[in-house]
Computed example of a mutant assay.
Amino acid sequence: MRILIIEDDQQTSEYIAKGFSEAGHNAEVITEGRNALSHAAGEEYDVLIVDRMLPGLDGLSIVKALRAAGIKTPVLFLTSVGGLDDRVEGLEAGGDDYLVKPFAFSELAARVNALHRRPPFQSETNVISVADLEVDLIRRTVRRSGKIIDLQPREFRLLEVLVRNEGRVLTRTMLLERVWDFHFDPKTSVVETHISRLRTKIDKPFPIQLLHTVRNTGYSLHAPH
């Protein structure tokens, strides 16, 4: 097994690398975030062990960038940031498992082995369809009833989040985090403005409404029941 350890604490990284090397695995260590992203994106690894707090680029951003690029290498977050919200954030960013420091190497090894035993990811479809709306995630194109719809990059990202969560209600806070990467309320109408623009483009020219406002809650994209 080839393992990339992304960890800036020398004592911790050496301890982990030694443990996996003694077990017969190839364990590499990178201590800086941007360098780690380059390696993880450009080479083949079986599992990534990622600390969240890193110089250059934090672990959460590394994993988000990998997932956005379509790289499905299993990721285990190994970090001292261990609150419930932190664990949820790590998993929603694309992590597959989350282990909080201090840790026992035996548990770390068992979790890494479990990730490695998982069946390989099947290729994710490039096109997500909701009724007659088609969103091509690779070509970054949108069609409805065969008609091409021109979206700005942020509008496309908003639509992508909505179609990936078809039928779910996404709150304003959730959209601020997932589309704009805001982890605070900017006290602006940016969400409402972009929802209005998106609705004008994907809904108003067509007879069936797909983008719905759920009063006092958020927004949902789905075909009428």
Rank of each mutant, 00 (worst) to 15 (best):
residue 60 L to F: 10
residue 182 F to A: 06
residue 107 E to Y: 04
residue 135 V to Y: 08
residue 174 M to F: 14
residue 180 W to L: 03
residue 130 V to T: 04
residue 155 E to Y: 00
residue 83 G to T: 15
residue 107 E to F: 06
residue 202 I to M: 08
residue 146 G to A: 07
residue 105 F to V: 07
residue 89 E to A: 14
residue 144 R to I: 01
residue 121 F to A: 15
residue 199 R to Q: 05
residue 97 D to G: 04
residue 141 T to P: 04
residue 156 F to M: 03
residue 140 R to Q: 15
residue 60 L to W: 08
residue 130 V to C: 09
residue 179 V to I: 07
residue 196 S to P: 00
residue 122 Q to K: 13
residue 134 E to P: 00
residue 199 R to P: 00
residue 175 L to E: 04
residue 121 F to V: 13
residue 109 A to E: 11
residue 105 F to A: 04
residue 160 E to T: 07
residue 114 A to L: 14
residue 98 Y to K: 05
residue 159 L to F: 13
residue 132 D to R: 13
residue 185 D to R: 04
residue 192 E to H: 07
residue 187 K to G: 01
residue 177 E to Y: 01
residue 92 E to G: 01
residue 77 F to S: 05
residue 182 F to K: 14
residue 159 L to C: 13
residue 85 D to Q: 09
residue 70 G to D: 06
residue 146 G to R: 07
residue 87 R to M: 15
residue 143 R to F: 12
residue 168 R to L: 14
residue 132 D to G: 04
residue 67 R to M: 06
residue 117 R to C: 11
residue 145 S to R: 13
residue 112 V to A: 14
residue 122 Q to D: 09
residue 151 L to A: 10
residue 72 K to Y: 10
residue 68 A to C: 06
residue 71 I to E: 06
residue 175 L to Q: 04
residue 105 F to H: 02
residue 127 V to H: 02
residue 148 I to S: 13
residue 137 L to G: 08
residue 91 L to W: 01
residue 62 I to A: 10
residue 79 T to R: 07
residue 191 V to S: 02
residue 172 R to C: 04
residue 81 V to H: 14
residue 156 F to D: 03
residue 77 F to K: 07
residue 74 P to F: 02
residue 86 D to P: 08
residue 121 F to H: 13
residue 94 G to A: 09
residue 170 L to P: 08
residue 66 L to M: 15
residue 113 N to R: 14
residue 101 K to N: 01
residue 185 D to N: 15
residue 181 D to W: 00
residue 85 D to K: 09
residue 135 V to E: 07
residue 86 D to G: 13
residue 158 L to N: 03
residue 148 I to C: 00
residue 66 L to I: 08
residue 117 R to M: 13
residue 122 Q to P: 04
residue 198 L to W: 10
residue 153 P to I: 09
residue 151 L to Y: 11
residue 90 G to T: 11
residue 197 R to S: 12
residue 188 T to H: 02
residue 69 A to D: 11
residue 165 N to Y: 03
residue 157 R to D: 14
residue 156 F to W: 06
residue 146 G to S: 07
residue 94 G to M: 06
residue 83 G to A: 09
residue 124 E to S: 12
